[in-house]
Amino acid sequence: MPSAAEMSGTVTLFETVSENVRDTGLAGAKLAGMIRDDPSMPSFVCLRGDLGAGKTVFARGFIGALCPGVRVRSPSYTLINEYPCRIGGRRIRVCHMDAYRINGYDDLFSTGFYDIPEGRDSAVLCEWPEKIYFALPERRIEAVISPVPADAPAGTPEGRKITVSVVNE
């Protein structure tokens, strides 16, 4: 029986409603723990959401869970921030990327994107992945942060809906 990470198509890993910054960070940390503990899980994460949705907060939770104690800075101007850390004795690179200002392959190439190790030697968290759609791995995780819809069932708290899925194209 294949794990959720190995099945084809889109498989939801978890859904949650975040009522505050702490909840959003915890969702990021939860995903990081799943990637850390399950070798079959893709380690490339597309992080989608509008400006102000909480992507950076999610990223802080994610990176903080893998690299405790690091100060997470915005990659808006540096494009890719790299956090070297050790997981179970393995040296890995956690890369936090903001693709918003990347226009096409030449731009992406010149960021050093293709120097990031593939597979279990790295974890990549990419904001605005739609700007580099041509370079996204076929197996990846999609984390989408969106407003809780107005027609949500009664009793649903206000805040952000966070949906995390594995995509196998």
Binding site: L51, Y105, E130, F134
Partner: peptide, 24 residues
Amino acid sequence: LEKLKGPGTAGTNTEGTTSTEANK
């Protein structure tokens, strides 16, 4: 390679600029 990924659908992000997202 880009053609293989599909022409994509135009979408507008919250800053009002146009971005292209592939049909997945």
